[in-house]
Write a protein that binds this DNA or RNA. Sequence first.
DNA 1: GCTACATTGTGCCCGCGTGCGCAATCACAA
DNA 2: TTGTGATTGCGCACGCGGGCACAATGTAGC
Lengths: 212, 212
Amino acid sequence: MPIAIPEVVIDRLPVYARALALLERQGRDVVSSQELGEQLGVTPAQIRKDLSYFGRFGKQGRGYNVGRLLAELRQILGLTRDWSMVLVGVGRLGRAIVGYAGFAPQGYRIVAVFDSDPAIVGSDVDGLIVKPVDALESALRDQQVDIGIVAVPGANAQEVIDKLVAAGVKAILNYAPIAAQVPPDVHVKDIDPVLALQSMTFYVKDQTTAAK
Amino acid sequence: MPIAIPEVVIDRLPVYARALALLERQGRDVVSSQELGEQLGVTPAQIRKDLSYFGRFGKQGRGYNVGRLLAELRQILGLTRDWSMVLVGVGRLGRAIVGYAGFAPQGYRIVAVFDSDPAIVGSDVDGLIVKPVDALESALRDQQVDIGIVAVPGANAQEVIDKLVAAGVKAILNYAPIAAQVPPDVHVKDIDPVLALQSMTFYVKDQTTAAK
DNA sequence: GCTACATTGTGCCCGCGTGCGCAATCACAA
DNA sequence: TTGTGATTGCGCACGCGGGCACAATGTAGC
């Protein structure tokens, strides 16, 4: 059990879970690592190896029971409970995040929103009253919050992240364009479409011009 | 020159470029790999090794000229020109993407938007008239388009991606919750906050409950 | 029940990316 | 000029993740 599990493995598990949920909705009850791998663009051996870190969920000659494996993965990833999140930064991006329909079905709820702009504080965003960032720490003392979402301009992001960390938040979803500095026990995932675009353009920069 | 450059290296270059742009705005004219590494949470050796794939940009005893290195990276990544993009899927998410202020400053422009819903087609979104998805291929023949953005529900995403690929698009930014199937010469980057959250909860699932 | 077939779980090896360590090199001061 | 200090570029070795290949094991058919 004290065997360290590579982070890349953990990153793949939600992808497996997502594919299994789709298969379940389609009424499938068993699936092989072969078939799952083809759908996801991963080798079957990779899937089996990843799963073997956590147990033996398959049956030789058959494959994996879809519902069973999905339940196991949800258990492993902690998806069996709901997670409460706070959002900091209620600009255009922040409002879009509050309105994003993809969180709720997976059990992720935004329970409070904060902003530093006095003109925005007090206004209503999808049923939530915007609170001042100064109230962040006291608000996090009152209610249990698991995850922080940062959607402020890059210049203020580190400062906001520091406040979240000080308030005891251990998981941060960062939309700001900075490389956040956090202690080792805090987990940060960056969402930055611009970085994604900039790395893709490296590969296509010659082709597209030549195709003209 | 025919040395293959690892994809992880390419993924880091935009991060370096972003940090250098910030340093330049702050008026700095030289920076060492040491200092840059501390800001980004990367080892100095990693930065030097990454850059050495493309040339020798530093000076011993000094470090890197900020403006010079930034210009080189922009050249390497293809950031010296503008890129035109089409968006498919004008729901809540799609509209947020059109309104996202982060693209334009980096030279990424959305030049056309498409949707399959007849109720949406024809409406105006931030100055762009929504066109039907059927018009996708012909529209891409008329104007040069480099990148496709997919913001449709998962069930329709693969179909839309197929159309983009058929139209010759080589770079796709995918917001849909699916693992897209594309030919090897097409590049896909996924943006999925839910996957990011689900992999983080693995690490904090015990701590948070215990902290109660 | 026995045989044929399919698929898992895992030991092992290979390759690649990461980081160390040092020689080469540049700036700057004396 | 010459010496000192700092930092780069890169050869090399290590470690880790990925995938192969096979034994183990379950299923299904006869």
